[in-house]
Amino acid sequence: MTKRNKIIYWVATLWLALGMTATSIVQLLQSKDETDRMSHLGYPIYLLTLLGIWKLLGVTAVLIPKFPLLKEWAYAGFFFAMSGAIVSHFAANDSAKDFFGPALLLILTIISWYFRPIERKPVTI
């Protein structure tokens, strides 16, 4: 892995971890803004707790060494959660500003996944 790719990986991964951790904390605290947003999108409030816990577990999986298959699942979970958020905002006819956070986290997920070091990839047969 080149030095350039390592830098891209770690910058994207750390920003992804920061973004996912920050949003998970907001979801776990269930602030009024967050519960209003979930209601607006048509989702039950208890989903905030599930998303918050899953995001923290996903961040842990992506950052810790080893466990490459677990990392794949974490990246997949981030991809599904963020693409689902984008589709949900689209379906609710939300403004462009509502797409920014999920779109940025989706892009960071893809970049981090693509540039991950070989030892963080599952073994293929």
Rank of each mutant, 00 (worst) to 15 (best):
M1R: 12
T2Q: 03
I7N: 05
Y9A: 09
W10D: 05
W15D: 03
A17W: 10
A17R: 11
A17E: 07
L18Q: 02
L18G: 06
L18W: 08
M20N: 07
A22T: 09
S24A: 09
S31A: 07
S31M: 10
S31N: 04
E34Q: 11
R37A: 15
M38H: 09
S39K: 15
G42R: 14
P44H: 15
Y46D: 03
L47S: 14
L48T: 15
L48H: 15
W54F: 12
G58S: 09
V59T: 05
A61N: 06
V62D: 03
I64Q: 07
P65D: 02
K66E: 04
K66D: 05
L69P: 00
L70W: 07
K71C: 01
E72D: 10
A76H: 03
M82S: 01
S88W: 12
H89I: 00
H89F: 00
F90S: 01
A91Y: 09
A91H: 10
D94R: 11
S95V: 01
K97W: 12
F100I: 13
G101E: 02
L106D: 06
L108M: 10
I110T: 13
I110Q: 04
I110E: 06
W113R: 13
W113H: 11
I118A: 14
R120M: 11
R120W: 12
P122N: 02
T124R: 14
T124K: 14
I125E: 11
